[in-house]
Design a protein around this nucleic acid. Structure first.
Lengths: 114, 114
DNA sequence: TGCGAATATTCGACCCTTCGCATATAGTAT
DNA sequence: ATACTATATGCGAAGGGTCGAATATTCGCA
């Protein structure tokens, strides 16, 4: 496989390599949401969400549809959703190790989420 | 889904988000290779391969087995190979768009590979 | 046309990753 | 022990990603 293709594939993973973008992709599984709805569900700054959407758009992981004042996003190809689903299986399978790793990683105490 | 888990999942993608590491994972599909064999197949510096292996090890995408003088690597869970396989399907499906994107991305001329 | 709402883009600071180089560790053999 | 091979780790420089704040664009409506 030529390196240019591998670089491209790496870029796709790179696009998925951010918690917010994963959250966006998971929220978009099977349905369409506007940028505003995403912003509200994720409780993040408008500009920030928009930047992450720009990344996902640039790598063509999502497509957008303008409807009046709003822009609706959806996942471009269900294969990507399958990838995310596989990842969920992977995490369930290795949940114990995952937790241990998590603790090592932020090696002291994980602040409680609220 | 808690954000800590999503961060962890993002880290997995991050680990895959490099052409060299994708190459390593693909070479390891279904078989075991030593660090030296990987280095030779990929024609990269020893230290560099070793650093990439360290990343893959840290995220537990590969496991290693010491045998005398050498260290053999293999993929920890075939689910990850499935993810890579899905990605290959995705690329075949969108090959035309992929190529166009590639040209936009290094938007002038792509230096010939040798 | 002008205004307000929804979304996008730009900018600068900070941080993290990657590379090459140098060095360290682990194992084998003599 | 010494020497040699295989692999790993530490370090600094360069590059790229992420964030918040400010600004720009696009659309609908009066």
């Amino acid at each position: 496989m030529p390196d240019s293709l591998r670089r491209f594939k790496a870029d796709i993973f790179q696009a998925l390599a951010h918690p917010t973008r994963i959250a966006i992709m998971e929220l978009l599984e099977g349905r369409e949401l506007s940028a505003g709805e995403l912003m509200e569900k994720l409780r993040m700054e408008q500009a920030n969400i928009s930047q992450h959407l720009a990344v996902l758009r640039a790598k063509q992981l999502v497509v957008n549809r303008k409807a009046g004042n709003q822009v609706f996003y959806s996942v471009r190809d269900p294969i990507i959703s399958k990838v995310l689903a596989l990842m969920r299986r992977y995490f369930q399978k290795h949940l114990k190790d995952t937790m241990e790793l998590l603790e090592e990683m932020h090696d002291s105490v994980i602040p409680p989420e609220r």
